[in-house]
Amino acid sequence: MLELRLVQGSLLKKVLESIKDLVNDANFDFSSSGFSLQSMDSSHVALVALLLKSEGFEHYRCDRNTSMGMNLGNMSKMLKCAGNDDIITIKGDDGSDTVTFMFESPTQDKIADFEMKLMDIDSEHLGIPEAEYHAIVKMPSAEFARICKDLASIGDTVVISVTKEGVKFSTRGDIGTANIVLRQNTTVDKPEDATVIEMNEPVSMTFALRYMNSFTKATPLSNTVTISMSPDLPVVVEYKIAEMGYVRFYLAPKMEE
């Protein structure tokens, strides 16, 4: 028996919108502490890791650990039928090949049930090692999205370099080059507007902008984004989901041949 009631249903809608273009199918792993998802994109260049902890739900019941394979495109179609103010409940029964999404309007005058077929997904689960990163940049998520969008109009890859001067995003393409430098800026009215650079050692890495732009679909989930880099690891682009968990995107770098 599985029953999860999320008053802020729009959160689940936003989570799906942030990952559905990167990953087609994924196993949702439910346990008593919450649910998680880990999946690579089809070309095995990026990985998404989602965690939503049980504390964030108004009601959370999961009698035994269970994994449900879902097509994220189909799940997104169903969740789009929920209003932004709706309460969403996810229900499942042991051994069933379907999951039910229930949408309740805030005034309880409209209640909808959507039953979705589950699928068997043979997915690899990867061990992500704990790591000390050379540099961690925390910045407004909207600013990061703007930079990725702007640079993608010039080139295909972005070089992200962190030094004690700041963080530099660079690209080059047929029409020219672009460099955007952000300096640490903590003297802002609101903490979410700050750019904070923690640097143990300078680092410079190259990434495909196509993936970075896909990650920025998670911007509505959080005012800030954290970018963690070490030369021998995929970059981690993390959007925290207030009091509930996170969506993390891992992206393997491009290397000089």
């Binding site: 260049v45 990867l126 021998d232 690891l233 995929p234 491009k254 041949e257």
Partner: peptide, 14 residues
């Protein structure tokens, strides 16, 4: 010319 690395180059199967 840059070579796109894969996630599996860094993270291993559990």
């Amino acid at each position: 010319p840059c070579l796109q690395r894969k996630i599996l180059d860094y993270f291993k199967d559990d």
